[in-house]
């Protein structure tokens, strides 16, 4: 596995390396993100969004 960096966090999900958007199943999972820690994320790939040029995942959970 290649580690990705969290580039942005919004109210519904997180962006990895400015190209993968992970929409969270529960927004409370956002509290699990700390600047220094590594997280592991699991979700469903729904497709490539060619409007924003990013890969989109939904129902993501942070383990």
């Amino acid at each position: 596995m290649y580690p990705e960096t969290v580039t942005t966090i919004d109210d519904k999900g997180i962006m990895l390396s400015s190209k993968i958007y992970c929409q969270l199943k529960q927004v409370t999972d956002l509290q699990k993100i700390n600047p220094s820690n590594n997280i592991s994320i699991k979700g469903r790939i729904i497709g490539y969004d060619d409007l924003l040029e990013e890969l989109k995942l939904d129902q993501c959970i942070i383990q």
Partner: peptide, 20 residues
């Protein structure tokens, strides 16, 4: 569907959206 992407150009009023 809670993951619809949409972009709006506020100068021209053009809109584009995409959903899976």
């Amino acid at each position: 569907n809670n993951s619809t992407t949409a972009i709006i150009n506020i100068n021209s009023g053009e809109i584009a959206s995409l959903l899976f």
